[in-house]
Amino acid sequence: MLCSLALLLPVPVFARVGKDLTSTRCLSLHNLHTGERLRNVPYCVKGTYQVDVLAELNHLLRDYRTGEVTTIDPRLFDLLYLTESNLGVCTEIEVISGYRSPATNALLRRRSKGVAKNSLHMQGRAIDIRLPGCGLKRLHRAAVELRLGGVGYYPKSNFVHLDTGRFRLWQGV
């Protein structure tokens, strides 16, 4: 589980946003469905992911409908960290959706055609967020500039989707 970030993300990405591989990376998350918060948790220290903190983050991002917890791709936390860094902010990220069990994904697909059948949410590789005090367009633009994964823009639903899949862009409702 412990791995060097150097194997997962290229150095130029960190250089572009003024970060290096040896810095301590922290996040603050607020799950809007459960009300739970983690504040300023150091998920990666000196290039090493912190297993205990990752477990806390996995729990926070669980499927709130079923209680099911999965292992979230640590690169997703890096993507959140880099997006905030690109914006020049460090704030509490509001989580609309993290992990989704296959049952929850199927339920959501029945309610909306905008839910992918093989959603990366079911693999712990996607998250839907917003940042208080940061406009949705600005958040979207900051994530797109990184070119590190999928970025969906949902202005009517008031969130941005980020994932660790290949770089691609789309707009939803």
Rank of each mutant, 00 (worst) to 15 (best):
P132N: 11
R109E: 05
G18V: 14
D52Y: 08
R25K: 13
D52N: 09
R62I: 07
T70A: 12
R39D: 06
L79D: 00
P12R: 13
I72C: 00
C90W: 12
N158E: 04
N58T: 12
L87M: 15
I129F: 00
D20Y: 10
F159V: 06
L2R: 11
R168L: 12
H30Q: 04
N40Y: 07
L148A: 10
L7M: 15
L76Q: 01
G88R: 13
C3H: 14
M1N: 14
F159Q: 02
L139I: 11
A6P: 08
K117I: 14
S23F: 07
V69E: 05
R130G: 06
G67P: 07
Q50G: 04
A6I: 13
T66L: 08
S28G: 04
V41D: 01
I72A: 02
Q123P: 05
P74G: 06
V160Q: 02
L8P: 09
L61I: 09
T66W: 02
G98I: 02
C44E: 03
T104S: 09
L9E: 09
L136V: 12
I127C: 03
G18S: 13
A15F: 15
N158V: 09
Y81L: 10
G114H: 07
G35P: 00
A6K: 12
E94L: 03
R75H: 09
